[in-house]
Amino acid sequence: LKANNLVCVKEIKQEYSHIEKIGVVVEEILMRNKIKPSQIEAIVVGKGPGSFTGLRIGYAFSKGFCFAKRIPLYQVSTLESLAYQSGVNDSVVISILDARRGEFFCAAYLFAKGRAMRLGEERIVSKLELYSLAKEQNKKVYFVSSDVEVLKDFNMFDTVVVEEVSRGLLKAFEASLSKVKDGGKGRDFNLAELAKASPNYLRAPAAKTLEERLADRSA
């Protein structure tokens, strides 16, 4: 995003390739658009929920880049990003992602005048709980996801397939934050905040870091 205009969108949809390609893709985008790393004023990262590995790789790269360049990191919900790509208004949008084990990551948003107000917390629910959530609303409901297969279970409702989640991430960011546009490069950099930034897994990771395993042993 440059001068409030979207310069380029690139998404990696191959499984298990993020760690190999994220740096290459970023370098390619910068070179193609003649942007120097020193010109980047902030990083916006999708904080999940989602794949444990994908989130950790995204955060490791983003936090490392922000630390090296002393620029702020902004975190945006993946579910909110999906909602902003729905293109609906005066309706309730329920963003869903496959959480495996027959469950779904979900969050409901009320859209009015292009802005989303979240209704309740992001959570993991069953299919029946999603049906109940939809029927509780007193406005038209849309189910939104980036996964066509997930939406097949909800074809009795209106559904929207999101092709490029990153566009929604930027829309959600623009709707909630304007700090990057208001300040100079690095004005909002805060090392303590950067260190605390972490993904929203919703479900505890099965694999833990060495520090987490040592903490469990000493507890």
Rank of each mutant, 00 (worst) to 15 (best):
G48C: 08
E20I: 00
A83G: 04
Q85F: 08
E212A: 08
N4F: 01
S51G: 07
S218E: 14
E212M: 07
S51H: 00
I43A: 03
S145H: 01
E164S: 03
Q85A: 14
A60P: 08
S145Q: 03
G183D: 05
A42F: 02
E212T: 02
M31S: 14
V148D: 15
A107Y: 04
F104L: 12
G54T: 02
A68T: 12
E129C: 11
P199A: 03
G114I: 06
D158L: 03
N5Y: 03
A116S: 10
K140W: 01
E41H: 11
V7R: 05
L210S: 13
D98C: 05
A3T: 09
Q75Y: 10
E15N: 11
K185C: 07
S51M: 07
V25G: 00
V162S: 01
G50D: 11
N5G: 00
F157N: 06
Y131Q: 14
H18A: 15
D90K: 12
S38H: 12
I12C: 09
P49G: 02
V148H: 13
N190Y: 00
E136A: 14
Y59F: 15
V76I: 12
I12H: 05
Q39E: 15
R100S: 13
E20M: 02
Q39N: 04
Y59M: 08
I94V: 10
R118K: 13
V76D: 04
E11W: 12
S17H: 10
E103L: 04
K113L: 05
C106D: 02
Q14S: 13
A112R: 13
V125K: 09
L170C: 00
A3D: 14
L1K: 10
G168E: 12
S126D: 11
G50Q: 03
E164I: 09
I124T: 08
K140F: 05
K135H: 08
P199W: 13
N200L: 11
L151I: 01
D98Q: 00
E11H: 01
E163H: 07
L128N: 14
E174L: 13
E193W: 10
S198I: 06
E129T: 07
F65E: 08
S132H: 12
S81T: 03
G54D: 13
V141T: 02
V92Q: 04
F154S: 09
N190R: 10
G23H: 14
K69W: 15
G114H: 03
